[in-house]
Design a protein around this nucleic acid. Sequence first.
DNA 1: ATTTCTAAGTCAACAAGGCTGACATAAAAT
DNA 2: ATTTTATGTCAGCCTTGTTGACTTAGAAAT
Lengths: 177, 177
Amino acid sequence: MQQANRMNPPRPKAQGATIRADQRLFLTDEQLRAGVELLFFAYRDFTGDPDRILAERGYGRAHHRAIHFIRHRPGLTVAGLIDLLGVTKQSLNRVLRQLIADGLVEQAVGEADRRQRILHLTQTGRELEASLSETQRERLRRAYLEAGPEAVAGFREVLHRMMDEGARRLVGGAGRT
Amino acid sequence: MQQANRMNPPRPKAQGATIRADQRLFLTDEQLRAGVELLFFAYRDFTGDPDRILAERGYGRAHHRAIHFIRHRPGLTVAGLIDLLGVTKQSLNRVLRQLIADGLVEQAVGEADRRQRILHLTQTGRELEASLSETQRERLRRAYLEAGPEAVAGFREVLHRMMDEGARRLVGGAGRT
DNA sequence: ATTTCTAAGTCAACAAGGCTGACATAAAAT
DNA sequence: ATTTTATGTCAGCCTTGTTGACTTAGAAAT
């Protein structure tokens, strides 16, 4: 099951004296395809650790995402969470209802707008969130450490530019750039 | 919480004999958390384009992954695909059966081992695969181009180190970077 | 040659987590 | 007073993952 990947030599061909082929080797279809697979495998392993912890408690990845954002976006409303997750109200409601029933999440009536429900974690919720994100931070920490600051900057740079316009504004949390 | 999540100037700093705290700013919990979110949003947008195309044809992400690997791993067997995807035989079978029925995938009896089924795409299958991966490569190409070769190297480096041992061997197919 | 193991396929049942559509209520906005 | 918005909920559907059980064909081992 080997091979058949490198039979895709750089296409650019010489085109005048402007751009040389070897300057764009990182943009060949083969390089891009490798990036696609890298993302697939890395993301799969990345979500694997918390998935195992969640399964023990009868939760899924959707619960993880919800409590992650509730933890890190103080003052977050239901509509805000829906925007962040990119899911429908009905879909979120199902997991939110569980989390509230289980005492991991609480709601408070919004001060400015009393229709809003401001979400926050309980102590129990914070504990679960911490144990979940710790596994992911640990994985990332190891990768960052091994790769070094320069690589990390590049990692973040590329990921950032991969995002849609809309998403870029959501990244980084509250008082970010 | 007031730092740039994008341009993330590395901290080379002159190091004495010991490691100073500011050399590890890229390893703070806050930086790591930002990385976690970056991955979430980038991956979500990254899979969004093909998802839309797939939906038009009544397929899902599982079909995409299957035809991707069938396309890029010549001689791939069913068991091999199961390993790559990390799903069960039953789960894959459902998807594979559809793809075969719809004439996107064909099977050939293995030469060495006639129990095996060697998977390959038909012309139609190759066309769909191309249109799906083109959207992803295009997104990645833009991000790579904007970020530059150095950043891309870092991107790949970090992703690679995020993977589990087992997955690293599967990446890139053949002779990878 | 017979037994055992393996690759593939299938059926059934279940769960998570997406989706749409329809509707209800309270509070804000007009 | 009316309309719009934020939230919540019911019902039903789909995809894609899971387990468990069982079959068939071919390879391997005894």
